[in-house]
Design a protein around this nucleic acid. Structure first.
Lengths: 234, 234
DNA sequence: TCACGCTTTTACACTACGTGCAAGTTTGCA
DNA sequence: TGCAAACTTGCACGTAGTGTAAAAGCGTGA
């Protein structure tokens, strides 16, 4: 599996600003090979129908090495989700500190509603057939994201006078995550793995609507349902 | 483990309206013995430091029988959470159909903020030292509760004209659960397993505040923090 | 009281998971 | 080139979870 030393060292020195040593390249490649193999097996065999050994064989590594990278099959698959959410957090952190958290979340999610970014997540979702409850590692990824949001919100709140309300931070971050998940779940249930522009536009609307619902305190109550998203052509 | 037939049959016939045959009594007793044993081991050995075999031995059953009742150690412990949340759902369903969902949730939770009901959950929480991410079974319990809330909300919305907004239902139910969890987390982090009246009063306030935050759309924004709960003597 | 059918428990076997360990291999660096 | 650190691998071990068939417990009717 390891890449034997390349006899031609040139490889554009101005193209690798990051500390990309051969070690790190190998590790990254192995990591990718594992998730690719896991995803391929998920496609062909279905969830729960393949073992760690299967993944290791397909990735060309030993079973033991697999466990050096991931703690379980689920963890390997959840790296897809992790990647997506890390991306989301990155966008989130870029938002101006004086922007309301809900709007920051909305904007961050908007930046990710493009085909290339959403595709892996959408496939994972459909392949695991939204089995209601995600895997442990999948949930860990979302929870990690929630904690990140909490921290950012805490940092913003700290800039204002008065004690930081821990309940406010946690309730808000948790709700943002829940609403984000809800929007994605509805999208997947409506469009499957459809990544067409129209479908992605609907995803964006769902995300916006979800955050709007949260921001309005779900005031549609039991009365009419003027919100939207129930019918939006594009 | 099984209870040998009781030689004295009398046992008040008017006191057992439920179909409590000896079989069901044995099953219930075994189930209870398992969770008790698991909880005891959690207390003495700490999380992750005992096996299914340990639990089975302590409960006086075989390892195989344990798996007839629970799918894992976590599941056995999560029966505590399951019991609490089932109770909550029951209270929730009793609320009038024309009441706003958020208020129903608030009222249902109020009914459970008493020492006897909260104690087991509080102990479980402290023993697992709020390890940030709950066990899979624990999360399953919360998710089941979320689904129940969704269904109740759907039923209420169906009584009104217009199509039911799936996003609204899911986002609301998810947020309610998140806020409930947030309130409990803050409570546990502040008071540990303190079940004094003052502590429980604070729990009630936290739950009320959490639902209020949700109902107001977290409008405290980045400005002041007039909400409350940050300081409440009793 | 007994005998018959159904349910539950149990022992056994088996596959797979996850980890510690020590030996072998690759990489970074002087 | 040679050494030290990092990485991979095979092996062994304990544990998780499940299928299966035999044994024990329970309900019911004669």
């Amino acid at each position: 599996m390891t890449i034997s030393a390349d006899p031609t060292p040139p490889e554009d020195p101005d193209q690798a600003p990051a500390p990309t040593s051969r070690r790190e390249l190998n590790k990254a490649a192995t990591r990718q090979a594992i998730t690719d193999a896991a995803l391929a097996l998920l496609r062909t065999s279905g969830p729960g129908n393949f073992t760690v050994e299967d993944i290791a064989d397909a990735a060309g590594i030993s079973r033991r090495t697999f466990f050096n990278y991931f703690g379980s099959t689920d963890a390997a698959l959840a790296s897809v989700t992790h990647g997506f959410l890390d991306n989301a957090i990155q966008q989130f952190k870029l938002r101006p500190a004086d922007e309301p958290v809900l709007q920051s979340a909305q904007e961050a999610l908007m930046a990710l509603a493009d085909p290339m970014t959403v595709a892996p997540l959408a496939e994972l979702f459909t392949l695991t057939q939204q089995s209601s409850l995600m895997s442990h590692s999948e949930l860990e990824a979302w929870d990690h994201c929630r904690e990140q949001i909490t921290e950012v919100a805490r940092g913003r709140a700290a800039a204002t006078p008065g004690a930081v309300d821990e309940l406010y931070l946690r309730a808000l971050a948790g709700s943002v995550i829940s609403c984000g998940k809800a929007a994605m779940e509805v999208w997947f249930s409506r469009r499957g793995a459809d990544l067409s522009p129209a479908s992605l536009a609907e995803l964006r609307h769902l995300l916006i609507d979800a955050m709007a619902l949260l921001g309005s305190g779900f005031t549609t109550g039991t009365s009419p349902a003027p919100s939207s998203s129930a019918s939006r052509p594009s």
